[in-house]
Design a binder for these strands. Structure first.
Lengths: 353, 353
DNA sequence: GTGAAAGCGCTAACAG
DNA sequence: CTGTTAGCGCTTTCAC
């Protein structure tokens, strides 16, 4: 039945034509379910296809048609559960629309992002879904613009379509929640893998809330070798130290759930009680935050909706149904209150204002 | 500078040739960095490429060369952190070897798996990495065999190369750990998304351990609507009930970490203390199990090594460096002891044997 | 309704 | 060292 060689040559449309006793283009017509082929002929062709185990060559088709049924998906970090969840949705949505998808995990920009996009462009993907984007690389942006339809999902760039969550409002909600709980010194934890735009918006929302409450922004934390760290007067200060003293930090708003989970873990390992000594609020709505043991209060992004609208917009561009200036859609978010944030304890215990 | 239309036609090798004032094949020669092109000519071509923003068309190249630089990666479920971690590694490894990768998230077989593989085959992927596989679909297997190099990573099939963790031994270690802790009634929790082979091996390892200790296998749990469930004498029995009575279950070995995490969460929500009332051990070594609040004892698979060896084997097949019968590599695993498993409490408190 | 023929953009001999 | 040419497998007019 099978020959010895590992990978036999694939039968072509010509082989099928020969077996079916028809011409090449008739086979093509059958494959493309083109109207106007005798039932008889069609059946003969189908039989030949079956018999040969023929499988259309997408490469040849794409070359002839001058277009592919391929999406590129740019992901920040699959280790981040939220990103993985989004990637899964993109794959599902693409498949449902008949598109295959190529992934590139960029780890927040840099060389991986550039080569990944380059690769997608060379494969002439019909469109690219950006689940993360680091605009740092100028040439990248220009090689994208006008070359291929693009949509930013959960992040955004002014020069292309995007579907984003209400980052700023969400961050404000999160921070207001903390303020309502009685916190006065609220730090902001940023994660390198959150792309520029989201980061800025979330930072802005955080500041909005503080402003309205007449509070000053707390320290800005990033991840250092040994946990969250900030800089005060040129000197590095680690989180545990920030938790002491009279103007001490009592809460942290993390710009994403991955960071919030890590922060929680850091606190646990450092003997810092959450939420007793430190309240934590995240952003994204990653499934892991819903675990009873984690129970992180977070701002949930409507993942399905973001991805659905994003791919819809992309396909509309690809098919020419959508033209003109970039469209931006903002989807509302929701604060999911869990147990990682509570009223601050400490010296001013229960004292209001 | 730019025309009005959304996606301008891509310049071709011919455009470059025209601008550089050379022939088509000379351009091809410099692109393929073919030896024997004058520096002068090369520079002229490079300049033309730069000027036009030329980007080689991978589709045309692939068609002409009769091969692609594309991998297909079949994933079980990106929502499962272990799968996401593995997928990320495959992408990284592929990119490092110059391969782009197409993903298909199959959710454990069925239609999604079949169409995903079909799609990869039509795109003439150079090889497929299976991170999960459901052998249920007979025709699938036959359309794969001999058609394209394939490697199973973390799972396996007798008809193709595979790199797997020592599933059976790992499961035995996990179960022995539980036995050593004093457990006598240990249930096995299976997850639908673990493919046949891994499931069977892990079940076998679990039984090995019980056998050696002269114990009988405990109930076999699966996920029902309302948590883990088993069948006793044709009647469904939920986990909480199993935890009562004289021959009650005191520990569960979950065949994967995703299930273990869910089980832990189920226990937390049901007021079942872990590890006080119930010990839990998982399998995979997903990062999430390492969180201080989760702290699930698990059998860690060497992810990097699995993926590295897997892609190596695949590339060797693709390049013809490896031929003949399927090779199977088994990589050793390691029990990572954390806090989800402890000595059983209860009536026979501290009583030995 | 079916077949012949001209590409799609590139590679890979093979002449010059 | 460079140019000419014949495909790769399929689509897509356009005659028959």
């Amino acid at each position: 039945m099978s020959s010895g060689s590992r990978t036999a040559r694939h039968p072509t449309i010509l082989d099928v034509a020969r077996v079916a006793g028809v011409s090449k283009s008739t086979v093509s017509n059958v494959i493309r379910s083109f109207e106007g082929v005798t039932d008889e002929t069609r059946q003969a062709v189908d039989r030949a296809i079956e018999q040969l185990g023929y499988r259309p060559n997408a490469i040849a088709r794409d070359l002839a048609q001058q277009r592919t049924q391929l999406f590129g998906t740019v992901i920040g970090d699959l280790n981040n559960p939220f990103h993985a969840e989004m990637a899964k949705l993109v794959e599902r949505e693409s498949a449902a629309r008949g598109y295959a998808t190529m992934f590139s995990n960029t780890l927040g920009g840099g060389a991986a992002e550039a080569t990944g996009i380059e690769m997608m462009l060379e494969h002439r993907v019909a469109g690219i879904v950006f689940l993360a984007f680091s605009a740092r690389d100028r040439p990248l942006r220009s090689s994208l613009k006008g070359r291929v339809p693009v949509v930013f999902v959960g992040c955004s760039e002014p020069w292309a379509d995007s579907v984003v969550a209400a980052d700023r409002r969400g961050a404000r909600l999160a921070t207001e929640h903390l303020i309502a709980l009685g916190h006065r010194q609220i730090a902001f934890l940023a994660n390198a893998l959150v792309e520029e735009h989201g980061h800025r918006s979330r930072l802005a929302g955080y500041r909005d809330a503080l402003d309205r409450a007449g509070l000053r922004p707390g320290p800005s934390l990033t991840w250092g070798e040994e946990g969250p760290i900030t800089t005060v007067g040129g000197k590095p200060v680690r989180l545990p130290e920030l938790l002491r003293g009279h103007s001490r930090v009592t809460a942290v708003f993390s710009s994403n759930d991955f960071g919030a989970v890590e922060l929680l873990d850091f606190a646990d390992r450092s003997g810092i009680g959450v939420p007793d000594e430190l309240s934590v609020v995240g952003f994204d709505g990653a499934a892991v935050t819903g675990l009873s043991r984690i129970a992180i209060t977070t701002v949930a992004q409507p993942k399905e909706q973001l991805v659905r609208l994003g791919t819809e917009a992309l396909v509309a561009r690809i098919e020419g149904r959508s033209t003109g200036r970039p469209r931006r859609r903002v989807i509302d978010v929701e604060l999911v209150v869990r147990r990682s944030a509570a009223a601050p304890a400490g010296p001013q215990r229960q004292r209001r204002r």
